[in-house]
Amino acid sequence: MSARDVTEATFAAEVLNNPKPVIVDFWEPWCGPCRAVSPILDAIADDNAETIDIVKLNVDEFPDLAAQYSILNIPAMKVFKDGVVVKTVIGAKPRPALEQDLAEFLA
């Protein structure tokens, strides 16, 4: 299952109160690097479905959440554990590099 979209309404349930660690991909449709990294995150989500959830948040639709998490550059991938950001990765990267950055949270 690939990464699904979250909204302001579902953020608490899907991210903050999720028993699993969650990677939130803060993105925007007209950001080229965001579009490029999106299928890579889908693939990582598919291969690590047991250990981690990966969701996408469109910062254009939900600017308040983007501001709350101090998003200034996208794509920004933030790992939430027990409702708290424990890791941030900025910018599109090839899958091996991204997996290396996220290694501690992957299966």
Binding site: G32, C34, A66, L72, I74, T88
Partner: peptide, 14 residues
């Protein structure tokens, strides 16, 4: 990632 950027089209709106 905290205000230094190489992509105005990505990050300008912030």
């Amino acid at each position: 990632g905290s205000g230094v950027s190489w992509c105005a089209t990505c990050d300008g709106a912030f």
